Computed example of a mutant assay.
Amino acid sequence: MKSTEYITVTQLCTQYKVTSQWFHKLHDTGLIHITTVEEQPCVSLQAIHQVDKIMRLHQELHVNAEGIDIILNLLEKIDTLQLEMNSLKSRLNIYDTEQ
Results as ranks from 00 to 15, higher is better:
E60V: 05
H58E: 04
I32V: 12
M55T: 04
P41T: 06
G67H: 12
L72K: 00
K2Y: 09
H24P: 08
K53N: 09
L88F: 07
L75I: 06
T14F: 05
N86M: 10
I78P: 03
L75A: 03
D69A: 06
L83G: 14
V37P: 05
L45F: 13
P41D: 06
H49E: 13
V51Q: 01
N64C: 03
C42L: 08
S87Q: 15
Q46R: 12
V9T: 02
K25N: 10
L61C: 08
S90I: 06
L45S: 12
E60S: 10
I78F: 12
T36P: 04
R91F: 12
Q40N: 12
Q82L: 05
I70G: 08
H62F: 10
E84D: 13
Y95T: 13
T97Q: 15
M85S: 15
G67A: 07
Q59V: 05
V51G: 00
L83T: 15
M55H: 00
A65Q: 03
C13I: 02
Q40I: 10
H49I: 15
I54L: 05
L57F: 02
Q11D: 15
L26H: 00
Q59E: 04
T14C: 09
L88T: 13
D79T: 12
L75P: 02
S44P: 01
L75C: 03
Y6L: 07
T29L: 09
S20M: 06
M1N: 15
T19V: 09
L75E: 08
V37W: 08
C13D: 02
L12E: 00
Q46L: 07
Y95W: 15
K17M: 02
E5S: 11
I54R: 00
I70A: 14
L83K: 14
P41E: 07
N64S: 04
A65G: 03
L88S: 13
R91G: 14
K17R: 07
L12R: 01
E38Y: 13
Q15R: 06
D79K: 15
Y6E: 09
T4W: 08
M1G: 11
Y6K: 04
T19H: 07
H33V: 09
H62P: 05
T36S: 08
V18G: 00
I68M: 00
D28N: 06
Q50L: 02
E76I: 11
H27L: 02
E98Q: 12
K2P: 12
E38M: 14
I54G: 00
I71T: 08
H27N: 06
D69S: 13
L31A: 03
Q82R: 07
S3T: 13
